[in-house]
Design a protein around this nucleic acid. Structure first.
Length: 587
RNA sequence: CGGGGCGUAGCUCAGCCUGGUAGAGCGCACGCUUCGGGAGCGUGAGGCCGGAGGUUCAAGUCCUCUCGCCCCGACCA
């Protein structure tokens, strides 16, 4: 998308609703589940073309462009320079980085007329690295930081929630190149600051969290989460210690453990048909924390047993990173039988098949006389103890953190709270992963070649606008934060058949435009009720109503969408008051 | 990819079990009344019932296949 300015000469840009392309609806398809999706459809912002693929109608486009403007301004402050790369990319580059094979089905692969392979870019590390390696030779040219705002495509397994998880989506992506890690660290921090300013400027309640770096790879990574109950990500945070992380990544402080007991003999007890931890615990009259749950995972071809406290869950992202497997899934019934010699539900760390690697989570380390499956149908052990009865090959943290857990920050007694968020930004330190694979090198002071250190910084444009709605709405519609509002003001001619109403409304319209106010003028020949309902639905921050009744006293009514408290002001004062309010709402 | 569901008017959906004249609400057009919180009455336009095969005297309805979409689970800005 090319840069566009919203500060056109006002009089050249008449925005009369009767001539504008904005069609609201009362009804919404049953599958629009989340608020932002429903409201964007009802407010005539987006139109689905195919699964996960939308047209941005004019009203939505203005909001997207507002956000783009904020992003540009803040990135330029961070010395980040805009460019634009192609959406369609040759397979050749992706083969060079190794991702043509790695990326999987999410990468939309296409062929041209000569049967040459291309993909529709889901991200642009390869292209940018290719550009930079040709132009940059010397450390003197570094660091560099480049960004674009562009349409990307990821062939998501399951697109949903409108713009929140489309297949085609608008993203700002930036890439930085450095002579050393220290320089990368500085830019990474500068970008983190810029992101903070961007989300703050949008009026969003957000939090930045430690994140897993996923398929993009690299060392350090942070996500920016907009707090929303409909978010698809789960986040934990400790206000006291300042720790915040995606649960995929989150670590916790040591959990309190029961005091060690004198060892008891290992005893096999009959536990007919009790497979779930809760059942076992109740049947044997022990706490769930004293049960060691053992899960059998298939990692590529191998089998791995994971021992974890009975009342807790395994974090499969951590597990996947730990085992470095392409596919990590819970084992099939058949494989479980192979590993344990018993049906699902009776696995335990004692007496597993030789070929199964046992990994135990620290949550079970301090347990004495614990309960676990006996690797035998309808049987469990009591009085089990590490060392004497079983010894894991590895102790590794594979715990899924949850609210109420202690913060991992040493010296703090803080507790994690858990909430949901929408991931609107993600920044990574890539290191030299791509520069090495693709020979993106520079010469240092000694004239020696080195791969450049890289960072990459994504920000979902469409998703952020959706998140803004997700965070700012009521039962009647959207409540735009001023910085992202498609227009600042909605001016309504309430009785379009009344000549005086029209005359005054037109005059106000001209005056507002002359002062550079972004105003949508509802000049439609509709009934008042319809206009009010539409006004609430589309949610522009400031509303000005010119109606026959108040006009008889020389007044017009102004209100904010946020609180809808109406004030009558003299016609002559209206424009000034509106401008004051716009200033006040500008966050 | 596994499991479930849906394709009928511009939109949201009924009708399908139990085969026999194509429906409702909203929207749209026209008229009269109404006119500061999605008006009332009347009239009207609008459909290859996703597509292809089959069963049947007869298929929106039953069967098979296909395409598309959606929901629940494994991916990510």
């Amino acid at each position: 998308m090319l840069p566009q300015t919203l500060s056109h000469h006002p009089l050249e840009n008449p925005m009369r609703w009767s001539r504008y392309y904005l069609f609201t609806t009362r009804e919404v398809p049953a599958d629009a589940e989340v608020v932002s999706h429903r409201l964007m459809i009802r407010a005539g912002m987006i139109k689905k073309v195919a699964a996960g693929i939308y047209s941005y109608l004019p009203f939505a486009l203005r909001s997207l462009q507002k956000l783009e403007g904020i992003v540009r301004k803040e990135l330029e402050k961070a010395d980040c320079v805009e460019l634009s790369m192609p959406a369609v990319q040759p397979a050749e580059l992706w083969r060079e980085s190794g991702r043509w094979e790695q990326y999987g089905k999410e990468l939309l692969r296409i062929q041209d007329r000569h049967d040459r392979d291309f993909c529709f870019g889901p991200t642009h590390e390869e292209v940018i690295t290719d550009i930079v390696r040709h132009d940059v030779r010397s450390y003197r040219q570094l660091p560099l930081n480049l960004f674009q705002i562009q349409t990307k495509f990821r062939d998501e397994i399951r697109p949903r929630f409108g713009l929140m998880r489309g297949r085609e989506f608008l993203m700002k992506d930036a890439y930085s190149f450095h002579a050393d890690e220290a320089c990368l660290d500085r830019t990474y921090r500068a970008m983190a600051d810029a992101y903070g300013r961007i989300f703050q400027a949008c009026g969003l309640d957000y939090v930045s969290v430690d994140a897993d770096s996923g398929t993009i790879g690299g060392s350090s990574s942070h996500e920016y989460m907009v707090v929303a109950s409909t978010g698809e990500s789960v986040v934990v945070r400790c206000q006291e210690s300042g720790y915040a992380a995606n649960v995929e990544k989150a670590i916790i402080g040591p959990l309190p453990t029961a005091p060690a007991e004198d060892p008891q003999p290992l005893l096999e007890v009959a536990t007919p048909k009790t497979t779930a931890v809760a059942e076992v615990a109740e049947f044997l009259g022990v706490a769930e924390e004293k049960v060691v749950k053992t899960l059998i995972y298939e990692v590529d071809e191998a089998l791995v047993a994971i021992a974890i406290r009975g009342d807790r869950e395994v974090n499969e992202v951590k597990l996947k990173n730990l085992l470095d497997g392409d596919v990590v899934v819970l084992a099939s019934e058949e494989k479980v039988r192979q590993a344990t010699g018993s049906p699902v539900g009776f696995a335990g760390p004692i007496g597993l098949s030789e070929e199964v690697r046992l990994i135990a989570d620290p949550t079970v380390r301090g347990l004495t006389n614990f309960v676990c499956g006996a690797n035998k149908a309808d049987a469990h052990f009591t009085g089990a103890n590490w060392g004497r009865d079983a010894s894991p090959q590895q102790w590794e943290d594979v715990l899924l953190a949850q609210g109420g857990d202690p913060t991992p920050v040493e010296g703090s007694t803080g507790v994690l709270e858990q909430f949901r968020g929408i991931e609107v930004g993600h920044i990574f330190k890539l290191g030299t992963k791509y520069s090495e694979a693709m020979n993106c090198n520079f010469l240092n002071e000694e004239g020696k070649g080195h791969p450049m250190a890289m960072g990459c910084y994504g920000l979902g444009i469409g998703r952020t606008v959706a998140a803004a709605i997700e965070q700012n709405f009521d039962e009647d519609g959207i409540i735009w934060p001023m910085p992202l509002a498609p227009f600042q003001v909605l001016l309504i001619a309430l009785n379009p058949k009344d000549d005086e109403v029209v005359r005054q409304a037109e005059a106000l319209y001209d005056q507002l435009r002359e002062r550079g106010v972004e105003v949508l003028y509802d000049d439609r020949k509709g009934r008042p009720g319809v206009k009010f309902k539409d006004a609430d639905l589309i949610g522009l921050p400031v509303r000005v109503v010119v109606g026959a009744k108040s006009l008889q006293e020389g007044k017009v009514e102004i209100s904010l969408r946020r609180d809808r408290e109406r004030q009558l002001v003299d016609v002559a004062d209206a424009v000034g008051r509106v401008q004051e309010w716009i200033e006040g709402e500008a966050t």
